[in-house]
Amino acid sequence: MKKSLVPLACSAIALSLGGCGLTEANAPASTGEDGPITVTSTAENCDVSATEVGSGNLAFRVSNEGDEVTEFYLYGSDGLRIVGEIENIGPGLTRDLVVRAPAGEYVTACKPGMQGEGIRSAFTVTESGEDLSVQGVDEADITAAETQYGAYVRDQGQELVDATEAFLAAYTAGDDDKARSLYPTARQHWERIETVAESFGDLDPKMDLREADLEPGQEWTGWHRIEKDLWPPASGYEPLSAQAREPVAADLMSNTELLNERLQDQTYTVSDIGNGAKGLLDEVAAGKITGEEDIWSHTDLYDFQANVDGARVAYEGVKPLLDAKDEALSEEIGTRFDTLQELLDQYRTDDGGFVFYDTVGASERKELSDAVNALGEPLSKMTGAIIL
């Protein structure tokens, strides 16, 4: 779970169909004649212009009229499964979210300050009779994209279990040098499917919450709890004893296995895949670029690369669909991925890893940030280009 109080430019990562907004021509019919569903977020309210709409392509236009950075979520009926999200909406900014939603009960939420459960409301999608299939592309390509992405996620889930087990074995045995070497490579399997993992709202804070995002009285568990113990600050911290390490490790292992179990039954639509790719670039912009993600170990570039890996896999899976609908956009996304990868490769070490992020200067971080934004802008249009 990554949170940043640094607002991101709308043009860089907003999921839109025309710059930072939906054009009149592309606004989903199911949102009504007035266009997208508007959401106004303030410190105390999350005003949604409609609480019941027809099934189909839903467009939410979220405006932050508060003083803090906010987020907007559309959850499933359980209030945990994330159907779609927009993070890091700075004060005064407006961003768009497009999701393909079948009939059912949902929950909307704004999170001013990006903490807690947020300001929630019930949201109903009724059966409109609209054909939810993607038009203008080969159905076999759709099936292939969805099947291949599901297999990729399941594979990463199992690899996460295996790598986490090895990492925690070294950690609980007191082999800190080995544990430190395994920490960033094990986490890469989490980061490649981070947006999927985050969709399980009960597991994400247990596994990936940063210390800076703890709420009063909240127990700190997961990856970053162990990270701090392996790379302790020079003063003011008492390392965990061998005995105290056991329950912390067992908790992370148990939640990792539970995550993997849940992943085995998950299926993904083209909309899920496209929004997931956009979300992974959001994660890079929100935490990796700033160095807030792995603040103790400074292994942020491993996570950065893994987010990019996951986004690229998602893009390449739906590329045949995007080629058919908007070949120029597809080509631009591919070129931007290549450019970003070339920059990242400059920070590799001889063993295939990455340098510590605290050795990367401000100008180099700016260069990486610019490349992320240059990719994020066309990538944010991918889902809309395919499904609308």
Rank of each mutant, 00 (worst) to 15 (best):
N64F: 07
N26P: 09
D141Q: 12
T164G: 08
G222Q: 03
R245E: 01
N307P: 09
A234Y: 10
L321W: 03
K3M: 13
R262K: 14
M114Y: 14
L388Y: 13
N57E: 15
T339P: 06
V107Y: 00
Q188W: 08
V284I: 14
E194I: 05
L259S: 07
D208R: 06
L203F: 00
A314P: 06
A244K: 13
A12E: 13
H189T: 00
L379T: 03
E211M: 07
G113I: 10
D213F: 05
S133R: 12
V270W: 02
A9N: 13
S369Q: 10
L168P: 04
S41P: 10
S380Y: 01
A244M: 09
T267P: 06
D162E: 13
Y152N: 05
D338P: 02
S41D: 12
V62M: 09
A374Q: 00
D141N: 13
G104M: 01
T185P: 02
A371W: 05
A285T: 10
A385Q: 00
T335N: 14
A173K: 11
A173Y: 12
A145H: 05
L15W: 12
Y347T: 01
W231H: 08
K206N: 14
L74K: 06
N57Q: 15
H298I: 04
I89G: 02
A144L: 08
E261C: 14
E293G: 07
A306M: 02
